[in-house]
């Protein structure tokens, strides 16, 4: 209800602003225009902060939302992709490669969705096969060998559930990554940029720092599947989304993400450059801190981070 009011108010302000602007800017109207613009910006922020978890889920999946490659393009120089797991195949749903972050040699891993139908099919809708996880850990181990920091970009509905994926050990691939990432003696920073879909997301997410975009989600299961399993229908998706506590605010409160990164007005899809700029600022700060730690300290730091996750009683 309150949200409806905010929207109506916003429409009213925008209408007034348009009218005044039509009259042309002069000494008299300048202040009025400025005030109105400020009010509109504040209202937009308010509306965004009032989004329900399900609305945020839809924003996290927005088709114009910046994907891993959009950030890689903007944040790294001389990026070169590294393909294949050297065992079976190359999985286009996970991108791996090396490049430079403000002159620092780094390894980048990211789940990649497609922008149009052809791309989406090529990227398997961002759902990795076991080979994607195996490529990721292979390249991360190379980063460790040469002492280079690692950035990962998390954006997947989940690991692909298919016959071939099961035959080739989807579970083993993720399980192995969880254990091996815990051992790596280099800084790892994960950025949850869109959908953090369960084990498929975590498979590249055992990091020293987890940064999460304001409208990204991170969940054990999608609201749709949760509704199907627990309510046995598709009528309770919104309720499931609320129960699952999958928003950046929730994850920050439960001590899982280290920082919530703000997005451009209305969401990251409205301005890819600005979204990248906001993320860049946080990445730089965290990398600087982690670069002070030794390899053993980084492993210990990561252990402590995950060791305290969970809520229990009855000690």
């Amino acid at each position: 209800m309150e949200k409806e009011n905010s929207k109506k108010e916003l429409e009213q302000f925008e209408k007034t602003l348009a009218e005044i602007e039509r009259l042309g800017e002069n000494e008299k109207t300048r202040k009025e225009i400025e005030d109105l613009r400020k009010k509109i910006s504040e209202l937009k922020k308010k509306i965004l902060s009032e989004l329900t978890p399900w609305q945020r889920t839809k924003l996290a999946r927005h088709e114009n939302r910046p994907y891993s490659l959009d950030y890689i393009e903007r944040l790294f120089t001389d990026f070169e992709e590294i393909h294949g797991d050297r065992k079976y195949a190359d999985d286009p749903a996970i991108i791996a490669g090396f490049g430079f972050y403000k002159g620092i040699p780094v390894v980048v891993i990211g789940q990649q969705k497609g922008r149009n139908l052809k791309e989406r099919q090529h990227r398997n809708f961002g759902m990795p096969q076991p080979e994607g996880y195996r490529k990721a850990i292979r390249v991360m181990k190379m980063a460790e060998k040469f002492g280079k920091p690692i950035f990962t970009f998390i954006d997947t509905p989940g690991a692909y559930p298919g016959i071939g994926a099961e035959e080739r050990g989807q579970a083993e691939a993720i399980a192995y990554n969880l254990r091996e990432m815990a051992k790596l003696k280099v800084p790892i920073i994960s950025n949850v940029i869109g959908e953090g879909g369960s084990g498929g997301a975590l498979g590249i997410g055992v990091s020293n720092r987890i940064l999460m975009l304001e409208n990204a989600i991170y969940s054990v299961i999608s609201p749709e599947s949760c509704s199907a399993i627990l309510w046995k229908d598709q009528e309770h998706i919104k309720e499931a989304a609320e129960n699952l506590k999958l928003t950046s605010k929730d994850l920050f409160e439960f001590g899982i993400v280290d920082e919530v990164v703000k997005e451009p007005e209305g969401g990251a899809h409205n301005d890819h450059d600005l979204a990248a700029k906001f993320l860049d600022e946080a990445m730089e700060r965290h990398l600087k801190e982690l670069m002070k730690l030794s390899g053993d300290e980084l492993v210990e730091d990561r252990y402590k981070k995950f060791r305290k996750m969970g809520v229990i009683a009855g000690e």
Binding site: A175, G196, L202, V220, N243, K245, M309
Partner: peptide, 16 residues
């Protein structure tokens, strides 16, 4: 499911 992402993170905790 009833402990959401906290359950998910147990996977990383145990494997660490």
């Amino acid at each position: 499911m009833m402990e959401g992402v906290l359950s998910l993170m147990q996977m990383a905790k145990i494997n660490s």
